[in-house]
Simulated assay, not measured.
Amino acid sequence: MVIPVHDVNPVRRTPYVTYALIAANFLVFLATPGVASSLTGESGLAQLCHLQAFLDHWAAVPRELIHGQTPTTVPTGDVGVGAGGPGCVVGPPGYDKSPELSVLTAMFLHGGWVHLLGNMLFLMIFGNNIEDRMGHIRYALFYVACGYAAAYGFALVNADSADPLIGASGAIAGVLGAYLVLYPRARVWVLVPFLIFLPLRLPAWIVLGFWFGLQAVYSSGTGVSAAGTVAYAAHVVGFLVGMLLAWPLRRGTSPPPEPRGLLWGRRARPRW
Rank of each mutant, 00 (worst) to 15 (best):
L165N: 05
V103Q: 09
F108Y: 12
L200Q: 08
P193K: 14
V74R: 09
P184L: 08
Y139E: 00
I125W: 09
V103G: 06
V79N: 01
R187E: 14
I137R: 13
Q215F: 09
M120R: 07
P86C: 05
N158H: 09
N128V: 13
L101F: 13
G118N: 11
S161P: 01
A204L: 04
T76P: 03
V90N: 06
L198E: 12
L198Q: 15
V114Y: 08
Y148D: 01
H110W: 05
G118I: 05
G177H: 12
D163T: 12
V217I: 12
R187Y: 12
M107H: 08
G85H: 00
G112W: 02
Y183I: 11
A150S: 07
A204S: 09
G135D: 01
A83W: 11
V217R: 12
T105I: 02
L116S: 10
S98V: 05
A149Y: 03
Y139H: 03
V103E: 06
W113F: 15
H136I: 09
A186F: 14
F154P: 06
G135L: 00
Y218R: 11
F154R: 07
M124L: 14
F197M: 13
F197R: 14
T105H: 03
P199M: 04
Y95D: 03
A162V: 08
V90P: 03
V103W: 06
V103P: 07
N128D: 15
L104D: 11
P199E: 04
A151V: 00
M107C: 06
P193M: 09
G213L: 00
Y179F: 15
I166K: 00
V114C: 06
F122D: 10
W113V: 13
V157Q: 07
H136A: 13
V192C: 08
A204Y: 03
G82V: 06
R133W: 08
Q215E: 13
R201K: 14
G91H: 00
G213C: 00
Y148L: 05
M120C: 02
E100Q: 14
F212V: 07
G87L: 07
R133H: 09
A150G: 03
I125V: 15
F142G: 00
F126A: 01
F194K: 15
D160A: 08
N158P: 07
A150L: 01
L123Y: 05
F197E: 11
I130S: 04
L180D: 15
R133D: 05
S102P: 00
R187D: 13
Y179S: 14
F142R: 02
Q215W: 08
G84F: 09
I130E: 07
F154W: 07
G80Y: 11
G80W: 14
R138H: 03
S102L: 03
L200R: 08
A216C: 14
I125H: 12
L121G: 13
A155W: 00
G127Q: 02
S169N: 14
I196Q: 13
G167E: 04
A204T: 08
P184A: 04
P184R: 12
G177W: 11
Q215D: 13
G111M: 10
G111Q: 11
F194Q: 15
P75Y: 04
Y152K: 09
G213T: 02
L208R: 10
L176M: 15
F142N: 01
T105D: 02
E100F: 15
D163Q: 08
N129R: 15
H115N: 13
L109S: 03
G209M: 05
L191S: 09
